[in-house]
Design a protein around this nucleic acid. Sequence first.
DNA 1: TGATAAAATTGGTCATACAACGTTGTTTTC
DNA 2: GAAAACAACGTTGTATGACCAATTTTATCA
Lengths: 230, 230
Amino acid sequence: MCNEFIPVSQVIAGRIKDMIFLEKKYMPNDRLPNEYDLSAQLGVSRTSLREAIKILAANGILTIKRGSGTFVSATTDNPNDPFGIAYLEDKKKLVRHWFEFRLILEPPNARLAANNGTDEEIKAISDSAVRIAQLIKEGRSIVEEDQLFHAAIATATHNDVIKLTMPSLEAAVSDAITTSTKIGTSNRSQENVLTYHTAIADFISLRDGDGAEIAMRYHIQRGLKDLGHC
Amino acid sequence: MCNEFIPVSQVIAGRIKDMIFLEKKYMPNDRLPNEYDLSAQLGVSRTSLREAIKILAANGILTIKRGSGTFVSATTDNPNDPFGIAYLEDKKKLVRHWFEFRLILEPPNARLAANNGTDEEIKAISDSAVRIAQLIKEGRSIVEEDQLFHAAIATATHNDVIKLTMPSLEAAVSDAITTSTKIGTSNRSQENVLTYHTAIADFISLRDGDGAEIAMRYHIQRGLKDLGHC
DNA sequence: TGATAAAATTGGTCATACAACGTTGTTTTC
DNA sequence: GAAAACAACGTTGTATGACCAATTTTATCA
């Protein structure tokens, strides 16, 4: 059955979205017709049109300026791709940038984890390091567990922004990572992970912020080298 | 001056969001009062309330069922809030974490900008610093231009992950920033911005990575301190 | 020519009425 | 007595008209 009911406001929101992204009738920074004209043109009441506009404004597609008009936003960001990474073509470059970004952020993270983490959270980090060692011994993939290892550190920082950012970013870049590291799952990087993960986990367990920061820096620098881009 | 106009629909949307995530007055899957009662309770017209509801529904926070009622969404997956920050209770804590995060990331950013930025990009940074000084002189809000300043630096790093992360994160946290603290209204933080922005821009223009990094560190540390005074 | 004021334009809010849909309770029917 | 059909009620959806507030444009005057 096609019993699905779709409110006019939602239909109109879709129509306007199509006019912007499909028909390209209105380009970024263009001004839409005023609400009276546009509602008449679309054959709906001004009330319904306004609700549609509110929906699109909430999605960042439209920008409302009182007394001036309603405009197509300059930055048309996709809700499903908050970082806009889908539009980046050079994936190898993206992965390099991703490691550079982590090289800045993760060593201080390790220090924060050593300083702020609870005993439980730090135990989770150590456990993850042990599991990774086991996976390497079995010759299995460590990609998932490696992400969990770094996520556990992010949690132990007790900083909500870090905790929420890293996994989200990782998910956004994961496509680029997997496609570009298909070649590079060499023994060397396995060795890198095995060595430094245990070292990082130990330093954090000992509450040694300096050691954890340095170990993490070397770990990521090593990962950057293994990519073969440097 | 606080000449900024905020539509009632937007204010009401914030109020309802607070009732859900802060006061926990309505839990997931709970039904809100009907539009007549709720609009009377909030002291606004039903039209404005409906527009607020449309905004929240577009953000995935509310689910509307015609003939039945309006409910708090069960799904924890908010398309418009990829970081799930809306669920954090303590907004002040979030802002502090946001500054701590920037304290880690932005000083190296300033260094990268000094090293990698093109002359054009660096000129954009200087221009933004000049515009901010002008805005302060005129007593106007610098929030937008301040974001542009930091975005210009992120662009000059020539690191796509940084460039795409910072504005997106800033947008996600902006609600917490604006609601919990009035950044940019106190004279002390204005002074802070005026002093350090020009210093940072100058260091970057001189290609002095060390200076830029240190100036940025002091700038953000100062911002962190100013949070306690507002 | 430039500044000032009036007018037009445009989004914001409100009040009211009715329509469409879902739920719930009642009645009818077997 | 149980199931189906019906009716009443509550809720969201849509429409209309009026007026308010901010902005831009135009007209006016010195």
